[in-house]
């Protein structure tokens, strides 16, 4: 796992710059959520150790926090081309061949992204209508859905952008994209 090793694709065109800033801001928000999870969990340990009372429903909060962060991370990951590919069989193929298949992959991602976003809207409506909540804290489940749909929509827009702005020709350099 790369952790800071992925190449940075900083777009220079206007749309790209706006998208980059948006996805980055969203990713930082997700990072803040992970930070809060760390602080809450650590606090909960102290609560358990010294007051023998863990935060009620902390597990539910961690679960919701995880999904909140992951949704926020997805568009940024695609913006910096962080999604992993097997770059072996076409490693020495000409740039045109590579970018052709990258285009196919982008189209697939675009279609699947739209599908997931579209279906998630109905998932939210279902859970809203049924009034489903988390167990202990009774947090309505549907509230994660409009947020998730927004994040997925941004992901779809970014996928469309990366489809139109393929990665530059890196020549024979092995791409480190794990």
């Amino acid at each position: 796992m790369s952790e800071g090793l992925e190449q940075s694709y900083r777009p220079t065109d206007k749309v790209g710059r706006v998208l980059f800033a948006l996805t980055k801001a969203l990713a930082l928000f997700g990072g803040a959520v992970v930070g809060l999870m760390a602080i809450m969990t650590t606090t909960s340990i102290f609560g358990r150790a010294f007051l023998s009372s863990p935060i009620a429903g902390d597990i539910e909060l961690i679960e919701i926090g995880t999904s909140t962060a992951v949704f926020a991370f997805l568009p940024y990951c695609q913006m910096v081309r962080g999604n992993i590919i097997v770059d072996f069989f076409l490693a020495s193929a000409p740039y045109r061949v590579k970018s052709f298949f990258d285009f196919i992959g982008g189209l697939m991602f675009l279609g699947i992204g739209c599908l997931l976003t579209w279906r998630m809207i109905f998932g939210g409506i279902d859970l809203y209508n049924y009034g489903e909540t988390t167990g202990v804290l009774a947090i309505p489940r549907w509230i994660s859905f409009p947020y998730g749909v927004l994040c997925l929509t941004l992901l779809v827009v970014v996928v469309a952008y990366t489809l139109l702005h393929p990665a530059p020709d890196t020549g024979d350099e092995p791409m480190i994209q794990e």
Binding site: E3, V34, I64, R119, M120, S144
Partner: peptide, 29 residues
């Protein structure tokens, strides 16, 4: 199936360790 799959896949207590350990590794670096 896809209506709630994305939500439930990401809403996971067990997987919460992943971003936390990754963040830990980033800071360690």
């Amino acid at each position: 199936y896809l209506k709630t799959e994305t939500y439930w896949r990401f809403t996971s207590f067990d997987l919460s360790v992943a971003p936390l350990f990754i963040l830990m590794g980033q800071f360690a670096a």
